[in-house]
């Protein structure tokens, strides 16, 4: 198994979360401190393998002495900080943010969204039936993955994974402004005309299912996607000598999706097109035996 890389010892800093003393290593975020205190803070644009853009604002907490609420995922923990995770202001903002998101975006495939909406008493329907949404047809322009931007909350994770944080391909970026902002290739060209290398690392980090394997998209459309019936098996990619870990999601003895463990110290959840999408030979799916 992979070795856990040793890190230089870090000073611990003390702070208070909801009245509870916690100690976290220097450089940790408020979210880390909240986790250390056993608090479950909702997050969307935060990813364990990326530096978050803190755009979704669903993780806001109240920091004593701060005029506005602070995004827990990005604010560095400071000694003596006093954080409130469940204050009225923090809960109110989280509730409204969930309402704004759920009223404008399709969160049906966002893990935990329904749970949080219930927990915070959010009522997305209160904006009325005329409320503007980002609804649009899914972009199906290649055989490997689908971009369904009606589900996109603009968390910037795919852009960061494609660009400077991981892949350095820069096939996509945010285009437009305000409510009309979208994730887009240049001139909204199909992916096949873009710089995309189909590593699928954007799919790996997407928190809402806006980006999904074509296999998953098709199965969902056909009503065949059944996660509880799936098994996950982590193995090693056999294409080259790097030895990336693959997690094969299998339903009815067929691979339906490939992910990669985020805690792998070499790849951090990233793969290339071969590891991510090159599994057909395993089940020998071809035109002949369709």
């Amino acid at each position: 198994m992979s070795a856990v890389p040793l890190q230089p010892p870090r000073r611990l800093i003390e702070m208070t979360v909801d009245g509870q003393e916690v100690r976290v290593p220097e450089g940790a975020t408020v979210l880390d401190a909240c986790a250390a205190a056993g608090k479950d803070i909702p997050t969307l644009c935060h990813g364990d393998t990326l530096t978050p853009k803190n755009a979704c604002r669903v993780c806001v907490v109240e920091v004593e002495g701060s005029r506005t609420l602070a995004p827990a995922c990005s604010r560095r923990a400071e000694p003596g900080m006093v954080v409130g995770t469940a204050t009225e202001r923090a809960r109110h903002s989280r509730k409204v943010v969930l309402e704004l998101l759920a009223s404008s975006t399709d969160l049906s495939t966002t893990p935990r969204a329904a749970e949080w909406i219930g927990e915070y008493g959010a009522r997305p329907d209160r904006f009325g039936p005329e409320a503007a949404t980002v609804a649009q047809p899914p972009k199906v322009d290649n055989d490997l993955y689908v971009r369904d931007y009606a589900k996109c909350i603009l968390c910037y994770k795919c852009v960061d994974a494609c660009g400077e944080q991981w892949q350095n391909t820069f096939a996509i970026a945010v285009a437009g402004r305000g409510f009309d902002a979208v994730i887009s290739t240049e001139h909204d060209a199909p992916l096949t005309d873009s710089a995309c290398v189909y590593c699928g690392n954007c799919v790996e980090v997407c928190p809402t299912g806006a980006l999904s394997f074509k296999s998953e998209f098709d199965m969902r459309a056909a009503g065949e996607w059944d996660e509880p019936r799936q098994t996950q098996t982590t193995t090693i990619c056999s294409y080259c000598g790097v030895g990336c870990n693959l997690t094969l999601h299998v339903q009815d003895n067929r691979i339906v999706k490939v992910s990669s463990p985020h805690d792998n110290p070499v790849t951090r959840g990233n793969l290339c097109i071969k590891g991510r999408f090159g599994y057909q030979h395993v089940q020998n799916v071809g035109p002949s035996d369709g």
């Binding site: 853009k53 755009a55 903002s93 409204v96 704004l100 998101l101 603009l154 437009g176 409510f179 902002a181």
Partner: peptide
């Protein structure tokens, strides 16, 4: 369009 409270 960066953060949700303002964008939506």
């Amino acid at each position: 369009g960066q953060c949700v409270p303002c964008r939506v």
